[in-house]
């Protein structure tokens, strides 16, 4: 990767606290801290993977970035412009540049619209003129994503799950976006179809110079497709690093535990694999544990973990971790001393 040009997307201290109200007058009695202070950059052409268990705030993050949800704090900067509180009108031209792919290829397509209408809708909404007409443009896109252009007049129910996901992808490509946020794009698909869609996303990225934020809970898929990976736990990023560093030398105990929990099809070594087993489930984001939110499940937790929140600190070049007692950290790294511990 080239030495940090201006990032395409920059997320700074992003927050979404959903109010919990009670009674007729809707008095606020608490908040779900779904996303609680996220900061990361995405540079042009790369794929950032966002992983974590369900409820950790991945979908909310995607929806905040694309402004389908209003942040309650922090900033979203796209191509150097702060879009956090931009009006929907001002956002409209930006919508062309930033698109979202959803998990469920069944519910995200209007069943009463033809494929042609679905994929062509962005042209009409944005009032875009195309050289040879919308139909030709749509058929080109259908071909690009591996669908038969002659299926222009068919309805979503006439397609399989994998084909529907291709339709969803085709729709996002219509206006040549710069950034695509894909929320669990393959998790509803069978494994053979998953692989087709993963390859398609990779081909499109190369061909169209796309930048991706891929949200997924499947750590194997995320390793395959990401250049960098951010691990979330209860609304916060606990670790972010290049793919290789994260998978080969994870520093946060939660990342280590996640990786160790993935079942692998290696029957020869299944008995000797060293396993780290977390106890219990993810706590509720309504009442997250104090300080380090992982301390209730962490086998390395000490007193300090319950009282002092570990900041996300860069312990090796490009490798940030929020933990008082990180694994695999360089000897001279000082966890918790944010910003000053970067080795030369």
């Amino acid at each position: 990767m080239s030495e940090s040009p201006e990032p395409l997307l920059s997320v700074q201290g992003l927050e979404k606290h959903f109010p919990i109200t009670k009674g007729l007058i809707k008095r606020q009695v608490g908040a779900v801290k779904a996303v609680d202070g996220l900061s990361f950059d995405v540079v042009k052409g790369e794929t950032l993977g966002l992983v974590g268990e369900s409820g950790c705030g991945k979908t909310t993050t995607g929806r905040l970035i694309t402004r389908l949800l209003e942040p309650t704090g922090g900033k979203v900067v796209f191509e150097g412009r702060d879009i956090t509180h931009m009006s929907q009108g001002a956002l409209r031209p930006l919508r062309r540049d930033m698109q979202m792919i959803f998990q469920d290829p069944y519910s995200s397509l209007n069943p009463r619209h033809t494929v042609g209408a679905i994929v062509g809708a962005p042209f009409r909404i944005q009032g875009v003129k195309t050289e040879h007409g919308t139909k030709k443009a749509v058929q080109d896109i259908l071909e690009l994503v591996g669908l038969n252009p002659e299926h222009y007049n068919r309805y979503p129910h006439e397609f399989s799950g994998g084909q529907r996901q291709r339709i969803g992808i085709a729709r996002t490509l219509a206006l040549k976006p710069k950034l695509i946020i894909a929320d669990e794009p393959v998790s509803a698909l069978d494994v053979s179809i998953q692989a087709q869609v993963v390859n398609l996303l990779e081909d499109l990225q190369n061909e169209l110079d796309l930048t991706y934020v891929v949200i997924a809970h499947d750590l194997s898929v995320v390793r395959h497709i990401s250049d960098r990976v951010a691990v979330m736990y209860l609304g916060k990023i606990v670790e972010i690093a290049d793919r290789q560093a994260l998978y080969e030398a994870p520093m946060h105990p939660y990342t280590t535990a996640l990786l160790s929990a993935v079942p692998v099809p290696d029957v020869k070594r299944r008995t000797e694999r060293e396993r780290i087993r977390l106890q219990g489930d993810v706590p509720s984001p309504l009442n997250p544990p104090s300080a380090c939110r992982f301390h209730t499940r962490c086998w390395k937790a000490q007193e300090i973990c319950k009282t002092v929140e570990p900041p996300l600190a860069e312990l090796a070049t490009g490798h940030q971790v929020a933990c008082h007692f990180p694994e695999n950290a360089p000897k001279d790294a000082v966890p918790g001393d944010a910003g000053t511990a970067v080795p030369a």
Binding site: A195, S220, V221, R223, P265, R269
Partner: peptide
């Protein structure tokens, strides 16, 4: 073979490209 080729695996070095099965069930 197709199932195995479709699956990214954490216990192996990362392959450049997955090898899906064409078509649908």
């Amino acid at each position: 073979w197709g199932l195995l080729g479709s699956m990214p695996r954490l216990d192996r070095a990362r392959t450049e490209r997955l090898m899906p099965i064409k078509g649908t069930p």
